[in-house]
């Protein structure tokens, strides 16, 4: 059913202090990362308004990854608690909307966890390939 050549588009929000540095580390270590991911750097995962995630889906992302520092490690004390709070809301929203919950992921990745970042992208890419293109891709109707 799914076109074999089809490559998903995955949007990843990374925080400046941990997960972006983690993604950077993965690159420095020359780890293979699928070319499916588009990274948007934000200063803190707490800056990721749920609206950004929804916009990502509306603009055609097949999956959206919200990443940040581990709980307790936030550069801004407790902002990633807020991230987790909002993620809970988004998770219920996305599922009820009819999108597969796997298309939205929250991951904590520290600056030293390059391999984990690479694994995450691989894992999500595989999952989304099985799920196929996001049904939200039909942006306008004729």
């Amino acid at each position: 059913m799914v076109d074999a050549d089809w490559e998903p588009k995955i949007l990843a929000f990374c925080c400046n202090w941990c997960s972006y540095a983690g993604a950077d580390a993965a690159g420095l270590e020359r780890r293979q990362i699928p070319a499916t991911v588009r990274v948007i750097r934000v200063m803190c995962s707490g800056r990721i308004d749920p609206a950004f995630v929804l916009m990502g889906f509306l603009e055609g992302a097949d999956a959206v990854l919200v990443t940040g520092c581990h709980i307790g490690d936030c550069h801004y004390v407790d902002a990633n608690y807020k991230t987790r709070n909002r993620y809970e809301f988004l998770k219920v929203l996305v599922k009820e909307l009819g999108l597969d919950p796997e298309r939205l992921q929250l991951r904590w990745i520290s600056a030293s966890e390059g391999p984990i970042f690479a694994d995450m992208v691989r894992e999500v890419t595989e999952k989304v390939k099985k799920l196929g293109p996001s049904p939200f891709r039909s942006v306008w109707k004729s």
Binding site: L54, M55, V139, W140
Partner: peptide, 10 residues
């Protein structure tokens, strides 16, 4: 031109 607008989703 979203089928469901951001207004409604938000």
């Amino acid at each position: 031109a979203y089928a469901i607008s951001l207004y409604n989703l938000l």
